[in-house]
Amino acid sequence: MDNVFLYSGLYLAFLMLLSLYRPVFGPTVVDRMIGVNAIGSKTTVLLILIGLIFHRVDMFVDIALAYAMLNFLAVLAASRYFQKRKGLYDEPPYR
């Protein structure tokens, strides 16, 4: 069962690498925000998987809870912050 969790965690890390394309190349700022949010929601599951691999779930579950809240707050704060800066969206589309 440990091996299953190990390879699931590796696959999840690969998916996070895949969605890193959007934050790096995304045409607008909101596209980058979508990518960051998706990576954060995958990280929450990955943290619990790491806890199961190391047999310390009781410790890692608190970190996962804190990370979920932090991710939510970061997205809210970033979207409220970028609402007021219209000029930022004028960057040329990336083709």
């Binding site: 929450t44 809240m69 979207s79 609402q83």
Partner: peptide
Amino acid sequence: LKIMLILVFVFLASPTATHAIVDAGVRAGL
């Protein structure tokens, strides 16, 4: 139970975060 708590939190927070991002996009005029 704590894992279930994370789940409830994700279910409440995810639509709100999506709505915040959509709002930012709409106000920017995309």
